[in-house]
């Protein structure tokens, strides 16, 4: 066993940088030599190509080639095993390197600080989302009510979406739980303007029909836009409680992402509750 002084806890530069990036949710990628010369050697890169990589695989040219590949893997969110020559040559297999990308966690924006919000935020946290709860009503959108959320924002949905919308992508989710046209119409309009992968909207089929009329008044009539809305929100699994509904919503998000066939409430008829 190696003898380590108490101060050794701060003396691991690559691990410390990886740890800090993971805690902050910053994109980072790590290369590890797993076979060949220099087993265990590390190279760590962030998303910014202007930042120098940390660590070394034991050869400057190998570092340059693997550093470039790491950034490409990070951009794609891939993890892979690759082979290189000792100086990074392609088509050689002297060194086997494990390239691991740590993309930032996906985001879930939940609009509406209602009963269902806390349960959905809890389940989303289990799945690894960075969760933001947003409601314009100060009395409802409080830290005390949503301690599990990463962020509680008192603001109008369309204003929050205007500020963070450009960062939303296919892995992210917007859940509109207000079922109040004053809040949910601007939230939907704002979400449709982003590249977010999932837009779920709570409310009965009847509520959604009236909502569609309000959306049409706002100029939202494109079938491609309306086709992005999962409303009523969630899979048709007979969910009743906030917790069961949260599972139905998160399962729908997974099924949409993976392209598997699972019955969404949107695609059925009749009452949505068991």
């Amino acid at each position: 066993m190696t003898d380590r002084s108490p101060t050794a806890a701060t003396a691991l530069p690559v691990w410390s940088a990886l740890r800090d990036a993971l805690r902050a949710g910053h994109p980072v990628a790590l290369a590890t030599v797993v076979d060949g010369r220099g087993v265990g050697h590390k190279l760590l890169v962030g998303a910014d190509p202007n930042d120098a990589p940390l660590g070394t695989l034991g050869d400057a040219d190998l570092d340059r080639v693997v550093g470039r590949d790491l950034r490409a893997e990070l951009a794609a969110g891939h993890t892979s095993v690759r082979h290189y020559g000792r100086q990074g040559q392609a088509n050689q297999t002297d060194v086997e390197v494990f390239l691991e990308a740590f993309a930032p966690p996906p985001r879930m924006l939940i609009f509406g600080a209602v009963d269902f919000t806390a349960a959905l935020a809890r389940v989303a946290k289990v799945l690894g989302y960075r969760v933001t709860v947003c409601d314009a009503r100060e009395v409802f959108a409080t830290r005390a009510r949503f301690p599990m959320a990463d962020e509680v924002v008192v603001d109008w949905p369309h204003r929050l979406l205007a500020s963070v919308g450009s960062h939303l992508g296919p892995a992210d989710a917007v859940c509109v739980l207000t079922h109040d046209p004053k809040f949910d119409v601007p939230a939907i309009v704002g979400a449709l303007a982003t590249g977010v992968g999932y837009i779920g909207v709570m409310g009965s089929r009847h509520t959604h029909e009236r909502r569609l009329e309000r959306l049409a008044e706002e100029g939202v009539t494109d079938p491609a836009d309306l086709g992005r809305l999962m409303a009523p929100i969630g899979l048709d699994i007979g969910a009743r409680t906030p917790e069961e509904t949260a599972i139905a919503v998160c399962a729908e998000i997974i099924a949409l992402r993976t392209g598997r066939r699972a019955p969404s409430l949107r695609d059925g008829t009749g009452p949505i509750h068991a």
Binding site: T2, L12, P13, V14, W15, T32, V34, G40, K42, G55, F98
Partner: peptide, 8 residues
């Protein structure tokens, strides 16, 4: 699996 000491 790759198993290593956390010494980096």
């Amino acid at each position: 699996l790759f198993i290593e000491p956390l010494d980096w």
